[in-house]
Each structure stands twice: as C-alpha cells, then as structure tokens.
C-alpha cells in the first residue's frame, strides 16, 4: 500500500514538473522571439486589464486565466476567442491585422451580471 502511495506521489510530481517545464519553455520561446506576453485575468464580471492595446501586425501571446468561474473572451471582429477557465492558462498567439477599437464580450454565461462583462482591444 505504501509503495502504491509513493508511486502515485512520484508520478504526480514528475507530471507537474513536466507541465511546469512545458509552460516555462513556451513562455521562454515567446520571450526569445521578442513576442510580448499579455496576461489577462477574468473574474465576475470584468477582465484585468480591461483594455488591451496592441500594435497592428504585432504578434503577441495572450495568456488567459480565470480567478473564479468559467468565462469566455470573444472579439468577433478580430476572430479572436478563448475559453477562460479557473486553474488553467489558455495561451493564444495572436496578430491583429487591422487597426481600430474592438469590443470584447464574455460568451460563457457566468452569472447575474454576465451581460455587463466586456472589455476593449485597441489596435493602433
């Protein structure tokens, strides 16, 4: 029994290290290639930051996570969409091909003020 518990713990730890290394490598790759990494946290009923400023034709890495429940991040005019989930980081490599101000909305019904949850992507 003790062996089984030990084996389970070791396996979990090894997996966690691999996942961490994978994520770190991904971030490092983004950093090495000079791509900006923008972290966005969703929470009832807003995004932090609420406004994201990008440069046209600039490739960035968007890192989404939620601090409470499942949310969405949807900018239909830019073809940009992500599931934003608690306990998980969703990464999207994104290049804005047109300038302007584009509304963000949460498209995962998240609670009483879900319909108020929005933000803005400004592409200059």
């Amino acid at each position: 029994m003790l062996r089984m518990i030990l084996a389970y713990c070791v396996t979990t730890a090894v997996l966690a290290i691999f996942v961490y290394m994978g994520l770190t490598e991904y971030s490092l790759r983004a950093a090495e290639s000079g791509e900006r990494v923008i972290k966005i946290t969703a929470h009832k009923f807003d995004y932090t930051p609420n406004e994201i400023r990008l440069k046209k034709d600039e490739t960035v890495v968007l890192e989404f996570t939620s601090s409470d429940v499942d949310h969405g991040f949807n900018v239909p005019e830019l073809g940009l969409r992500a599931d934003v989930l608690p306990g998980k980081t969703t990464r999207i490599r994104f290049t804005a091909l047109k300038a302007g101000k584009f509304e963000v909305h949460c498209d995962n019904f998240c609670g009483v003020n879900h319909e108020e949850m929005g933000g803005m992507v400004v592409v200059e």
Binding site: N74, P76, E77, E103, H105, D107, E115
Partner: peptide, 12 residues
C-alpha cells in the same frame, strides 16, 4: 445565424 456576435446574438 450570426446576427450580431459582438452582443452575443448568435449561436456558437
């Protein structure tokens, strides 16, 4: 149909 997805007036 995508009536106005910016306001979530659509079905995924």
């Amino acid at each position: 149909f995508d009536l106005y997805p910016q306001w979530d007036w659509a079905t995924g």
